[in-house]
């Protein structure tokens, strides 16, 4: 099979693309919100895992499911909403730590966010192998499956989609659009990102706005994590940091960047990134006899990310500033 054939196959297998597309779009939106406020949310990966952890806790280890189980569609819907919101809250918890440190202690958020991704992996792995270790796992280290009642609804004919996830994506994008284009909170976030002194001079505490930005961004990522668990994974695996998250938290940074920080371009950029990554995976499978296992979709998307970001930055500069040439006599 040739390179072009692989690309073609990637493009026509839309169902395979839809799932990464949706999650990349959702997390990409969340990261965009952070970028608007100069909160470089490279910690989405950790917030996503914490969203999954939260969702699993509520569905497996709280009395919530028995309470709502068998109560008709309205009650199950409510159950799912509660679980997803709780996942969002854990995402907030995870993004507020670097948020608070940035706002009140003036610690650069990037290293904190990145390091906390690994702490999230650790917590998830610890719970999976320890207190939450499942009984019905055929000897694997992993948690039990969440109850049927809490699982999301598969759309017939589109096996990789869930009704609830599609609704959530629409809500998230609409929320981000309204937030940034119509509300005063959104305006404050934009000022925080472009001139924090002016924000302060206008009478707002930029520390509070930093916290708001971090919380909103983390919330949406946490929601995505919870949806992931309820709709697709149904359990937490061990060694979750070994690519079992799909690294959406990282690749979505590229989505946010490609969208020129404009919410309207989130979907197209998510599509581009989804094609690139699944193309990367396919190429990897195709070439696995030729290449060592390392040159993976992961590596390819990281390089793409870096190069795109550099090129994008340069283009932005060329667009915004006219350079002047001086000819020496």
């Amino acid at each position: 099979m040739s390179f072009l054939e692989t690309l073609y196959q990637t493009l026509i297998s839309y169902t395979g693309l839809l799932e990464p597309l949706i999650f990349l779009a959702m997390i990409g939106t969340a990261i965009s919100i952070g970028f608007y406020g100069s909160f470089w949310n490279v910690g989405a990966e950790g917030q996503y895992v914490m969203g999954m952890v939260g969702a699993l806790f509520l569905t497996l280890f709280s009395p919530l499911v028995p309470l709502f189980e068998g109560g008709g569609t309205v009650l199950t819907a409510l159950l799912k909403v509660l679980v997803v919101l709780f996942g969002g809250l854990l995402g907030v918890l995870w993004s507020l730590v670097p948020g608070v440190l940035k706002a009140y202690v003036r610690v650069t958020e990037v290293p904190v966010l990145l390091l906390m991704n690994y702490v999230a992996y650790s917590i998830s792995d610890y719970l999976t192998a320890g207190p939450w270790k499942g009984r019905y796992t055929y000897g694997y280290i992993r948690t039990d499956l969440i109850p049927e009642a809490a699982r999301l609804t598969i759309i017939p004919g589109l096996e990789m989609l869930r009704y609830e996830v599609v609704v959530a994506l629409v809500l998230v994008i609409a929320f981000a659009y309204v937030l940034l284009e119509r509300t005063e909170v959104g305006l404050r976030i934009k000022f925080l990102g472009t001139n924090p002194v002016a924000l302060r001079a206008s009478g707002y505490d930029e520390r509070v706005v930093t916290l708001t930005t971090a919380a909103l961004s983390g919330f949406v990522v946490g929601v995505a994590g919870a949806l992931r668990l309820l709709g697709y994974d149904y359990r937490l695996p061990y060694n979750i940091g070994d690519g079992k998250t799909g690294f959406y938290g990282y690749t979505a940074i590229l989505v946010a960047w490609l969208s020129f920080r404009d919410v309207r371009y989130i979907l197209p950029s998510a599509l581009i990134v989804a094609v690139l990554t699944s193309f990367g995976y396919r190429m990897q499978m195709l070439l696995k006899d030729l290449l060592p296992p390392g040159i993976s979709a992961y590596a390819i998307s990281l390089i793409l990310m870096g190069v795109t970001l550099v090129v994008y930055s340069i283009f932005r500069v060329l667009r915004d500033y006219s350079m002047r040439l001086v000819v020496k006599p």
Binding site: K190, F191, T194, N195, V197, A198, L199, A201, S202
Partner: peptide, 8 residues
Amino acid sequence: YYIFSGDL
């Protein structure tokens, strides 16, 4: 510097 955001 003080009161406006030039990008907005």
